[in-house]
Amino acid sequence: MARIVASAVRTCFGDGAATFGALLEGRSGVGPLRHVDAASVNVTRAYHPADDGPEPRYGASRLLTSVVARALADAGVDAGTERVPVVVGTGLRELRAVERWAEGRDELELHRLHFGPCLAELGEGLGPVITLSNACSASGHALALAQDLVDSGAAERVVAAGTDVMTASMLAMIGRVTPAPTTQVRPFDENRTGVLLGEGAAAVVVAAGTAGPGETGLLATGLCCDAHHETAPDVAGMVRSMRDAFTRAGVGAEEVDLVVTHGTGTEQNDPAELRALRRVFSGPRRPVLTGVKGAVGHTSGAAALVNVDVAMRAMRAGRVPGVVGLREAIGEADGFRFAHPAEVPLPVRVAQVNAFGFGGVNAVTLLAAPEVAA
């Protein structure tokens, strides 16, 4: 049995507590796009960190270091003396630093394109540092590998993390597939107009043993790489990743109380995700659904672990935030219930976290409250 003993997050709202509070209040952190010329990418809005100043040379590393340091401290891990492997999931790594170099704005230190140097600043015990570039489910894959390392006895504690900042190339990609710039991410809404990026990072410390007070049971992560299409999601692949998680965890779909959806607010993802959920949760008891990207944007490689942090806080608080930006649900949502923050209490014993990436790189994690994990 594995457990999550600490979690740290950075989003446009700040840390995990600030993010969860903003979600419960139904706030959106969207604001004007910074650092990249809006006209050149057809994107005018984004979810930047609240304390964002001048654009740093290695922004993904800076965010990563902050959350890993916080998670280690909360877990009581001395990175100066303890050997702790780190698995980092990312979609873009330090591509923005390369873009700035290509524009003639900065020098480029090639060794800083890997996350090892920045994490070494936190302690000599951190390592090896393994980086996975698995699109928007990257930190979910990092979590799966971290659990494998713990369950196999290869390490006592492992850090799983995710980090990404915006790049001009990714902004241009999302800006060129919509006729007019998107103003806010509106997951599962009839009037959704597309996705927007959010900068962020998240880290958890995974350890062996039964979850105790203040901890969360890490039951399993189901994985799938269906390679159905370069960008379009495949319902069957989503279903396989969910069922893989159930098989690995030894739980049934009827035991899931909450699904923290991927929910990108796009024409392709939202209907496909709901169709997949309908196939998996075909019985009379269906979980409550929520999603965070309307509030914090799409944090790319960090998205899976941001969702994990929200799920854990919902378990502890007995409150589940609603979906910011959702006003009129699409037809595929019929028969499902989205969370409403005023609904208190809303007990969550088992939670599912969805993360789906380009190329059908999927990761679905199942979490359990301590009494269930025991």
Results as ranks from 00 to 15, higher is better:
160 A>E: 05
52 D>M: 13
111 H>P: 08
42 N>L: 01
64 L>S: 05
302 A>Y: 03
51 D>M: 12
311 A>C: 08
240 R>W: 02
11 T>K: 04
51 D>P: 05
16 G>K: 03
17 A>W: 02
145 L>V: 14
253 A>R: 04
354 N>Y: 06
372 V>Y: 10
362 N>E: 12
150 V>W: 09
316 R>I: 02
351 A>M: 09
311 A>L: 11
320 V>E: 00
279 R>K: 13
59 G>E: 00
81 T>S: 15
38 A>I: 11
57 R>I: 09
231 T>K: 10
96 R>C: 08
194 G>Y: 14
117 P>L: 13
43 V>R: 05
38 A>W: 03
254 E>N: 12
276 A>S: 13
163 T>H: 10
179 P>W: 14
323 V>D: 04
147 Q>L: 09
112 R>D: 13
166 M>V: 12
238 M>P: 10
355 A>N: 10
9 V>M: 09
267 E>T: 15
287 P>D: 06
84 V>F: 10
81 T>P: 12
133 S>H: 05
77 V>H: 04
268 Q>S: 14
100 R>C: 02
274 L>H: 06
71 A>H: 02
28 S>F: 05
195 V>H: 04
180 A>T: 15
85 P>K: 13
83 R>F: 00
315 M>G: 00
280 V>W: 01
327 R>A: 15
18 A>F: 07
352 Q>R: 14
51 D>K: 07
22 A>Q: 06
22 A>K: 02
53 G>H: 10
114 H>M: 12
143 L>G: 00
54 P>R: 14
209 G>T: 11
158 V>E: 00
31 G>R: 04
276 A>L: 09
30 V>N: 07
245 A>I: 12
308 V>Q: 02
272 A>P: 00
168 A>E: 14
26 G>D: 10
285 R>H: 15
374 A>K: 13
257 D>E: 07
121 E>C: 04
228 H>Q: 12
89 G>C: 04
170 M>L: 14
111 H>D: 15
355 A>D: 07
43 V>H: 01
368 A>C: 12
219 L>Q: 10
129 V>P: 00
287 P>H: 07
354 N>G: 09
221 T>W: 01
67 V>P: 00
294 G>E: 02
54 P>S: 13
304 A>N: 06
58 Y>T: 05
172 A>G: 15
